[in-house]
């Protein structure tokens, strides 16, 4: 037990938590923005995957990491817009459309990699480089925290910044107010002159961009290659974080950080004599329990009868 405690309290572990949490944070905020706009973004997974693949491929062929990252985020943004268009213009079911986009991303990325590189696994044969780490001057001098924070990736900093920015956006900015109004009461929002569709398109684009950044981090953050289906369900976990966080920015932030911590912990515990597969179920089991508890509490607050029909 003390071995575990030593691990958990080390600055290396803290650094690992931040690193592992980064894609969860970004994707969860992407999911949050979409959810608040009234369109569930099941396609987070596919957007991450497309961005990860595009980023690695473009960076590899153009030799520019920045160009790769931008293209990755761009593709994910387009997928967000496509989801919005399917929903708003063609009356598609968002869940099914999301599943379709995930399928498209999974097939499309694998097909692209196989066609370009003749490799079923990923882009490890392609030199694509990775996004820079950003050392903050002076931060190393803070004990424990300094070691954990120094040298974190650029995208990790962006992910940490996203929380206050989204909170500000939601509660202080006009766009955030419009977004929440549109998500909660689209008819009422339309009647007071809020351009509902434009707000939803913008929300879904932002959602896609955030998921894209998460994806780019996966293939260009600490590694410099894309692996087939490398998102491995992170988009869905992020979606779970959105609901666990109660659709509020700081709640989502904590939930995503919680998932990151659990995963980092699972990796650390894997070094002990416990089957790694069982350890890795911990975050999912925790989510399931948390989901039940959260739903139970909400049911009790609103009175049981209404919830069943909802």
């Amino acid at each position: 037990m003390s071995a575990v405690l030593d691990v958990v309290l080390s600055s290396a572990f803290l650094a690992a938590v931040l690193r592992v949490s980064t894609p969860y944070l970004l994707a969860a905020f992407g999911g949050l923005v979409a959810e608040r706009a009234g369109v569930s973004n099941i396609a987070l997974e596919g957007q991450m995957l497309s961005a990860a693949c595009t980023g690695a491929l473009v960076a590899g062929y153009s030799g520019s990491v920045a160009r790769g990252a931008l293209c990755g985020v761009g593709v994910a943004t387009l997928l967000g817009l496509l989801l919005a268009a399917l929903r708003l213009e063609l009356g598609a079911d968002v869940i099914i459309a999301g599943i379709g986009l995930n399928l498209l991303a999974s097939g499309g990325t694998a097909y692209a990699v196989f066609t370009l590189l003749d490799d079923k696994g990923g882009t490890s044969g392609l030199k694509s480089g990775s996004l820079p780490a950003v050392p903050l001057p002076g931060i190393e001098s803070i004990p424990v925290l300094g070691d954990a924070l120094s040298g974190q990736n650029l995208v990790t900093w962006l992910a940490l910044l996203t929380a206050p920015v989204i909170a500000w956006l939601f509660y202080r900015a006009r766009f955030g107010f419009h977004l929440r109004a549109v998500g909660e009461m689209p008819d009422a929002a339309a009647s007071v002159g809020i351009p509902v569709r434009r707000v939803q398109y913008t929300g879904l684009a932002l959602s896609g961009a955030l998921a894209g950044l998460a994806g780019v981090f996966l293939s260009m953050g600490y590694v410099s290659f894309f692996v087939r289906d490398m998102t491995a369900g992170r988009g869905f976990i992020a979606l779970a974080a959105v609901f666990l966080g109660g659709l509020r920015p700081w709640g989502v932030f904590l939930a995503a950080l919680g998932f990151g911590t659990a995963e980092a912990l699972a990796v650390q515990l894997g070094t002990l004599d416990v089957p790694p597969q069982l350890v890795s179920t911990i975050p999912y089991a925790m989510t399931l329990v948390a989901l039940a508890v959260y739903a139970w509490r909400r049911t009790r607050q609103t009175g049981g009868e209404v919830a069943a029909a909802a």
């Binding site: 009356g91 459309a97 399928l103």
Partner: peptide, 19 residues
């Protein structure tokens, strides 16, 4: 690559859901 089938399937899903 056989993955093109997944792409085709995805397009079918998207078209079907476009009610």
């Amino acid at each position: 690559g056989t993955e093109i089938v997944v792409v085709i399937q995805a397009v079918i899903v998207l078209l079907v859901t476009a009610q």
